[in-house]
Nucleic acid binder design. Sequence first.
DNA 1: AACTTAAATGAGAATCATTTGCATCTGGGC
DNA 2: GCCCAGATGCAAATGATTCTCATTTAAGTT
Lengths: 135, 135
Amino acid sequence: MNDESLREAGLKVTIPRVKILEILTANKQRHMSAEDVYKTLLTQREEVSLATVYRVLTQFESVGIVMRHNFEGDHAVFELKENEHHDHLVCVRCGKVEEFVDETIEKRQQQIAKQANFKMTDHALNIYGLCGTCQ
Amino acid sequence: MNDESLREAGLKVTIPRVKILEILTANKQRHMSAEDVYKTLLTQREEVSLATVYRVLTQFESVGIVMRHNFEGDHAVFELKENEHHDHLVCVRCGKVEEFVDETIEKRQQQIAKQANFKMTDHALNIYGLCGTCQ
DNA sequence: AACTTAAATGAGAATCATTTGCATCTGGGC
DNA sequence: GCCCAGATGCAAATGATTCTCATTTAAGTT
Ligand SMILES: [Mn+2]
Ligand SMILES: [Mn+2]
Ligand SMILES: [Zn+2]
Ligand SMILES: [Zn+2]
């Protein structure tokens, strides 16, 4: 969540990385696309190129700082990984995303993976539907 | 699974649609990308453009003949929807996909959606990991 | 079987998100 | 301050998917 996490990950502490980390931290409740992060940088008069935003987010993902999601097929969204694991409810109309954790499901997944002889590294459960407002 | 399903869906019975339906039927066990379908058409000397493959697959999806998945962010894959609902185990190394259904999880999902006041229209549970061969 | 027309298709251009090549810049160790 | 691997900006390249538009075709109607 700060310069230290960058050093620990073996990444130089550069302006773009620090700024992007700040933005993600200030938006923990959201799921931001590269474009979202880029626009936020612009409003802060930060001179960071979109290409760098993509590069940094990808690096953050590979060192475990963020998690990438492909809720909709056309663009990825990211969120800080410090939050404990959780799954998502996605409104197919307004795009709203709610998070949840269900122990019963978590356990069953492990059993299913073991049964199929898969060594589970990750999983993603997305429930799509209409949120209260959109129904 | 045949011309009748096209008519029922209100779609004209055209060569491209029939051929694509045949290919999907002959590959029920797989999950095919638009490109996969297109290449298969080529090996059969069928003159169908890639644009049409995309159009047809999208139409098939909207009338419920196929289901679209976004396992990996960069391209979608499709499978006939006649098969009953199921979720997926995806090998992150070789791409192998296994299917499964778990009633416990299905039920919990409904409860979770109801609890969050979402009207669930669909859901996707993907368990990622290493398959037996790849471990 | 020929006539009619809305729907379907092919070919290629256009989009859009994401990636890359390359010249230039900079963080951090000495 | 010096050095250089790693980082960045910019623009061009990619790759999947969509769109435009001229041409063709399925299928209902004489
Ligand atoms: Mn989340
Ligand atoms: Mn499947
Ligand atoms: Zn909504
Ligand atoms: Zn495998």
